[in-house]
């Protein structure tokens, strides 16, 4: 597996193909937008999608935790798709999650989907968190004055390959902020050239696209702009 290693806000970071960010100097693992129990949230609204999204997401999270053995795990908000998500967890999934949390500092940053998270499973529920010199919050703030890690936007970027458009979830980064891709199994994406993202990013941002085994780092100029 080839991850992309670079420096952000003075800290060495590793962007992994799964979409988790690792801060090796602080033994920290950061993930964004797990959207656990999205399937059951949709089922409550009469859409009976397959309910395995929580299990799929947790298995990927377990693999990342197993690989990097972090002491600190920061979830950057929207960890549950809705306020009732925690209560709806299947017992097996709940056990899997609490096992992952055991013995680690676990930070639930709240997002717009899980604003009222109770932290019934343990861990600390916060609106933002400082990791060394970096501020972790759910949604990037235009006026942030410290280097910032965030999620919320589910960024993805497209490249042209053999005259076809190939779109992938990605980390997107400039000197002040690093926005993580969504880690959840049932999460779509927003193109990095959407005004909501370009309004936050410096023009010459970089995207780290998630391949199957490799993270591909590309400058903004190499990405396909959406049709408009």
């Amino acid at each position: 597996m080839s991850a992309a290693a670079f420096s952000f806000g003075g800290e060495p970071v590793i962007a992994t193909p799964m979409g988790a960010l690792v801060l090796p100097d602080h033994a920290a693992l950061v993930v964004a937008d797990l959207h656990l129990e999205k399937g059951s949230a949709l089922a409550r609204r009469n859409r009976l999608l397959p309910p395995y999204d929580t299990r799929a997401t947790l298995e990927r999270l377990a693999a990342a935790v197993h690989r990097w053995q972090p002491q600190v795990v920061v979830c950057l908000g929207d960890s549950f798709h809705d306020g009732g998500g925690e209560a709806r967890l299947d017992p097996a999934d709940r056990d899997a999650l609490t096992n992952l949390m055991a013995g680690r500092t676990w930070i639930w940053v709240t997002g717009n989907h899980d604003r009222d998270a109770a932290g019934a499973l343990g861990g600390r529920v916060v609106t933002s968190w400082s990791l060394a010199a970096l501020t972790c919050r759910h949604q990037a703030e235009a006026t942030a004055d410290t280097p910032e890690l965030s999620g919320h936007f589910h960024p993805k970027a497209a490249v042209a390959l053999y005259r076809r458009r190939l779109s992938r979830p990605c980390f997107v980064e400039d000197d002040r902020r690093l926005i993580l891709p969504a880690f959840g199994a049932f999460t779509g994406g927003l193109d990095v050239f959407d005004p909501a993202l370009t309004g936050l990013l410096a023009p010459h941002f970089r995207a780290h696209l998630l391949g199957r085994d490799t993270v591909h780092t590309l400058p903004a100029a190499a990405l396909l702009r959406p049709r408009r």
């Binding site: 290693a5 780092t217 190499a222």
Partner: peptide, 21 residues
């Protein structure tokens, strides 16, 4: 190939190398 092409484009071009993890 994409990277090569991209490096010729006007960008700050400060792309760190990829590390094998």
């Amino acid at each position: 190939a994409l990277i090569d092409e991209a490096m010729r484009a006007p960008s700050d071009g400060l792309v760190a190398g990829t590390a094998t993890a």
